[in-house]
Design a protein around this nucleic acid. Structure first.
Lengths: 201, 201
DNA sequence: GTCTATAACGAGATAGAC
DNA sequence: GTCTATCTCGTTATAGAC
């Protein structure tokens, strides 16, 4: 564990600020205060706010890809992979943050093009990964759903992003968990036989 | 149709700006330009931006309640009411906007308390209305789902808000429609008998 | 109710010393 | 790579004439 470079610590602080306040509600001054370093020094690492924003999106997106790869190494079954995917989101919310790209999706009309492209790519990559997992689960019978896997994947991403968004405005983890459980239940295979009318959630 | 008062036209423009850019990315200058009226005049109607923000949330929230009441007058069956509810969201997205309270939910950390309370109330009222519709539908057999109606209602709101959010970043109406259809399918009663394995979505 | 004028502040950004 | 100093602009907000 080498000590973090200044440019990385800038990204850490800026990422947190974007996840909590949004892209347009944080400033170099905020990062400066938090890091105990002057504004001008920040501009040395990221000349413009757009540069910082692009670095932020790129790191977040590739970090997420890494996390997805880790899930695939650790879990073999589709349902376990799905659960780990949900846990990824839950971990963000537990730290009282919103998914950074969900946040940026709200700000999208005000973002430089390179950032917008990064955000779109984040969602595309998430859905592609999920679609693969879902399709595999349907093939081996551990999951069940109708229609294209890509559509089911988009549904999962939307539900989770929406659950985070709404949970921030209302409650916290409990509402998120309820929505997440319901989303996963959508993909569960039907019970073997003789449905004795038991609660599924 | 009486001519709109200036204070209402201010709300119209500000609402649009919030839905597209977010609360922290619009200014009195933007509204001023759009309306052809000086910034100082805006302050006559809404002394501070917080005042404007609170008026914005209140009007949006009560307007939504009116729309829900209209749905209940026009549609008798739970599935039709649900479909009309989804159409409400779709209409917002079709105009290339995001649900204003979904937008404000992203900005929540930067909002004055009165606005936060309004946003929370918006979601609470939406979920309460939906829960009533869902419970009625389950009672008369036009809908089917497990668990408390309130949980299913929260799930619907989250999915739709998330679908709007993600659709803005990626595609447009088509991805939203796909998610909405899938969300509604979650609440559909099982087909009568002999499921001949046909696509449900 | 709308205007001109202006205050007070914070934003993103740059120059140049160390 | 960090600093001080400074610039320019946009922001919210106020005072007071019309």
């Amino acid at each position: 564990m080498t000590a973090k470079s200044t440019s990385e610590r800038i990204l850490d602080v800026a990422e947190h600020l974007v996840q909590v306040r949004g892209y347009n509600a944080f400033s170099y001054a905020d990062v400066s205060k938090e890091l105990g370093i002057r504004k001008a020094s920040l501009h040395h690492h990221y000349p413009t706010k757009a540069d910082l924003g692009v670095a932020l999106v790129t790191r977040y997106r590739t970090g997420f890809l890494d996390a997805l790869a880790t899930i695939e190494r650790r879990e073999d079954e589709a349902p376990a992979r799905l659960a780990a995917y949900v846990a990824l989101y839950r971990g963000v919310l537990r730290r009282r943050r919103m998914c950074m790209c969900g946040m940026l999706a709200a700000d999208v009309a005000t973002l430089p093009r390179a950032m917008r492209d990064g955000v779109a790519r984040f969602f595309a990559e998430n859905e592609a990964w999920l679609a693969r997992v879902l399709e595999a689960g349907r093939s081996d019978g551990t999951l069940a759903f109708d229609g294209p896997a890509a559509a089911a994947a988009a549904f999962v991403v939307s539900s989770l992003e929406g659950a985070m968004l709404v949970a921030r405005g209302s409650g916290g983890l409990a509402p998120f968990d309820a929505v997440a459980r319901r989303t996963l239940a959508t993909l569960a295979p039907p019970p073997p036989r003789k449905p004795t009318r038991r609660r599924s959630g």
